[in-house]
Design a protein around this nucleic acid. Structure first.
Lengths: 237, 237
DNA sequence: GCAAAAGTGTTCATTGTACACCCATGA
DNA sequence: TCATGGGTGTACAATGAACACTTTTGC
């Protein structure tokens, strides 16, 4: 009755590299859209759900242990989104910490998501550019009201390193002073006790911090409309 | 290579009825899961994407013009989620204003989402109970930081009527005083100028309000991490 | 000593909550 | 006049932004 349909999973794997938000993509060697960049992914297997599938497919590109967060973004289902057999895609956001440098296949590389003239994205295959846009928007939103930063940052880091990560991901400057205060007040960060040596130009040595948790948690319960009797925002003793 | 797979769309259509959050569902007459409640939906057509499909399928159950908001929730793809041919579902949240009473087929009815002992949901077919839970959670979250209330409320309403809607949707008491102040401060509500007559028990006549917009808008940009120079939360002159 | 980088203290505007109090209507 | 529901005013705590100032290092 309905024509044959395939189901694929696609992942926009993001990482902060060289101070810029970058996405992992491979260059298509064969038509359609040959020469363009495409997101890693592939057909859903018979015995797996989409979450399992995307992790399996990613394992072929990067060491899975490097992927600190995976999250469903949306379904892309326009009938003409790829030529040939109809193919429905479930898109995911994946995150890799900035200190990881996983080995990738020869056709695969990181590409900056330059903000206004998305040069790399102009060459994206099919609707993959839209998927990357959605993934980036999701990351930006969740950085603000969850502890998702843990997925972008190394295990231990200085506040200014973290500030650079946030600034690169959000696309605007971030104040180290306020970032530190806000994240510690929310109990998202904690000091490790250790210090990082100053750089060649001198300066006071920086304290090292870590994320208190490494699983996603909403830290800024949304503003209005909480049950009565909870005082202000986060009921913290 | 991969076994045949179908793709369906399913909608958790929610409405506040009789002061309770209810979901539209129909009773299955045939196996599998015969007798249980199922969400409206059906197979994706060849020439439509999932958004179009869910609106088309809903049109068979309720007047589409009554559905004020439709939004993708997630993909449900466990290989064994339905018996027989593999079927992947894209789940949606749909909202109907509380003053609408659309005609529905004989096998279809509204079912309260009683909070702790989800009696109606115990009888849900397949994984539809989980879909309803996700849809409800999404609604609750978005009520707090967007103007999504417009999709649940009539065109015009009193503040106490709106308070009842929010309380039913959120599952906890809401103060009419603060609800009014917060929503007007965010420019989400505006007075129509008209008044509602008092009830039989007397009391001061209530002012009527409306939502300033009837399309989804984020009204509470998340707390921290905005670009510098924007003052506090919502930069309003 | 001086520049550079890190961190703390303080002030301020805005927000949401809580609660007291005033208004308008029907009986 | 009184109960009932509607609406406003005010005080308070928490939050994030901004910015001045202090601390600690290399040269």
């Amino acid at each position: 009755m309905t024509r044959p349909t395939e189901h694929e999973v696609l992942a926009a794997v993001l990482q902060i590299r060289c101070g810029a938000l970058q996405v992992l993509a491979w260059q298509r060697a064969r038509p359609p859209d040959s020469g363009r960049w495409a997101l890693p992914g592939g057909l859903l297997g018979d015995d797996e759900d989409v979450e399992r599938s995307v992790r399996r497919q990613l394992a072929e590109k990067v060491d899975v242990r490097e992927v600190t967060h995976v999250e469903q973004i949306a379904v892309f289902s326009r009938p003409d989104r790829v030529p040939g057999t109809r193919r429905i895609a479930t898109a995911f956001l994946g995150l890799v910490p900035s200190d990881a440098d996983p080995a990738v296949p020869a056709d695969t590389a990181w590409h900056p998501l330059a903000a206004p003239p998305a040069t790399a994205l102009e060459k994206a295959a099919f609707d993959h550019a839209a998927i990357v846009d959605d993934a980036r928007d999701r990351l930006r939103a969740k950085l603000s009201y969850t502890n998702l930063g843990f997925a972008l940052a190394p295990r231990e880091f200085t506040i200014s390193a973290l500030r650079d990560l946030y600034a690169a991901a959000l696309g605007h400057p971030v104040s180290a002073t306020n970032l530190q205060r806000v994240l510690t007040r929310r109990r998202v960060l904690e000091p490790t006790g250790a210090m990082a040596p100053p750089g060649p130009a001198g300066g006071r040595p920086a304290a090292l911090f870590r994320f208190t948790e490494r699983t996603l948690r909403v830290t800024d319960a949304f503003a209005v409309l909480r049950p009565p009797g909870e005082g202000a925002r986060t009921a913290v003793p």
